[in-house]
Nucleic acid binder design. Structure first.
Lengths: 193, 193, 193, 193
DNA sequence: TCCTAATCGAGACGGTACGTCACGTCTTGCG
DNA sequence: CGCAAGACGTGACGTACCGTCTCGATTAGGA
């Protein structure tokens, strides 16, 4: 079968990504090396370079693939319930191991490597943002939000403080914190009589 | 004189930081190397290692020193005016060269190097945040903000979306954008009758 | 026909050897690679490995095959005339491109690879030496050489200085040079009264 | 002292050459690698590349240095005695381990690398040849050789057959063989009445 | 005419070594 | 004595070939 080859190749691809995550968790992204990943996976370096152009690209793929399908969005009909649930899910996912530190390193790498930045946006950030804005828009159309409310900014206010804690102050990301953010946002969000 | 020696040392320190910024701007932080800085400055590597423990520490020092005293805070008495002025100053400073890309790289490095993260927080992030919260608190005491308003979160909502644009989506940071953020924040901020 | 397959195979064999010589002349033996020959010929690597065990063996085959039947020996009846003609033919063949540099590289490879050394001896060196000694012996039997003359050494004196120039001093191989060698040899070769 | 550094450097240089010879004798020149030499010597690869531009140059240096001062020339006053002694010394040196195989590989490498060829000539071949020709010339001036005898060719006839055995037929180099060569040469060398 | 077997191109694969770069440590000698 | 200069051991880079391997496609020649 033709699938044999593809299967073999896919197996190797996944094995490499698995080792990458393991190594990254053990020694940290800074000390991660393609040489090390190759050795740990029992694979030639070329086999890695054939698939990814750089350590950053490999790491991005490994991190994002490990977290398919990402953060799915609920839709209970009540925008407040949905936002709350979603933001708490984000904290659970990104605020602690295993994904938290990996994702933090990934965003860090994106600051040095435009390819990683672009891929990260396309594969994770933008879809997530789009889903959030779409959900907000629906609520707005249903009258749950005032018509002139700035949806893009609302999304940024949901995400930004979270990244601020994760990347800038690097304090633990808590449910209590995002709850407070949500409360402030809701104060400006609800339609006034 | 003893001052001579100190002066000489300080001169060298500044020369090294100057070369660091130049090199970083020319080749990018990722390709910056202590070896390169030493060569460009006409200085032995030891002279750099005597002053900074790592490339990250040197870069942090260079970036922050180049921007003393940072973002000063106005106090006109009107919190809205002050916040607006401050946030636009931040956009002017971080949203474009020369500081923008350097600062972006610096935050990136902080994700990989805890020492850089700590120093960045202590020397830049926390003082800035503290000033903002202090200004907000004063306004709250003057009755310009509702008493139960969450000041820490307000600060995070002012900063977070800015970092979100700078680090995550990496789109240009515009005055129009922060203005919209501010508007949403103000909607939840002003005291209700 | 069964010949078809053999013919096709032989065609491929020859195409590979042709590319080998071309590549060797273009980039030199040191940078010759089986990978390169395969690519240039439009052939899988396996097809080469199926025929030759190593780069050296392939190169040997290519060089020697390109020069079938080698140096034929004249027999005019006069040993001096014959030796002179033969040695000048050798200079014409080995002292200049295309064969000169290739042959030089071939002997070089023989120093590192016993298989090449053995094959080179069997297919080129020994036959050539045998023909020379045979011709000398015939001359000796005809009284043109003194009976106690050392034929093997005579052959080595005809060949040795030539290789000395080709491999050791690597100066151009001239007709004038071999003529002088021949003269010295003849001085000790001719029967004394 | 300034000698300290030079001494340290020279020590390393010699240690590297020593390992090179050891490794070459163990695994053969073809499998010799700079990586291997570095590992065996306990030295960084760069420390080798700083001193020699290629494996061939290192090997040449190692082989020739190990054999300083090479083949010294006797001068008893009798050219026949001197030539005989010299040629037998050459057989003792090059015809057997340890130097024989190393020297053979060295000449082999010279066929692929012009730098090695040039250095080999300058440091070993030409001086040796010059000494031989000088000794012959002196004998000629003393009337031990006929005035029109071709000294350069005589030198080539002493060396050539020796290299022919060493490099081409690769049979053992024996004293008996060079003795026969010498005899033939002497036959054409001695002045005729 | 179809089938079986061999051969082929293409190129993935685990390796080894290449030659380069920068790391952080060290030593030396000049000013 | 502090410094430039740069050698040093280390380890990773990204590349090139090695020789082995699997895959379909393209043949032949026998059923």
């Amino acid at each position: 079968m033709s699938d044999d080859r593809l299967t073999r190749a896919a197996d190797r691809t996944q094995a490499i990504m698995r080792s990458t995550l393991e190594l990254a968790q053990e020694v940290g992204y800074a000390k991660l090396s393609i040489e090390g990943v190759a050795a740990r996976t029992g694979v030639g370096k070329h086999t890695i370079y054939r698939r990814w152009p750089s350590k950053g690209a490999l790491f991005l793929d490994a991190v994002l693939t490990s977290n398919e399908p990402g953060l799915d969005y609920p839709d209970t009909g009540d925008i407040v319930v949905d936002l709350r649930q979603q933001i708490h899910a984000a904290v659970d996912l990104l605020g602690q191991p295993p994904l938290g530190p990996l994702y933090q390193a990934l965003v860090g790498e994106a600051q040095h490597d435009p390819l990683v930045a672009a891929a990260l946006n396309e594969r994770f950030i933008r879809p997530q943002a789009d889903r959030t804005v779409a959900r907000l828009r629906k609520a707005q159309q249903q009258g749950q939000l005032s018509p002139e409310f700035d949806l893009d900014v609302a999304m940024a206010i949901l995400s930004g403080p979270l990244y601020f804690k994760l990347l800038i102050t690097q304090e633990p990301l808590t449910h209590e914190y995002v709850e407070r953010v949500l409360n402030v946002l809701l104060a400006g969000m609800t339609p006034r009589p």
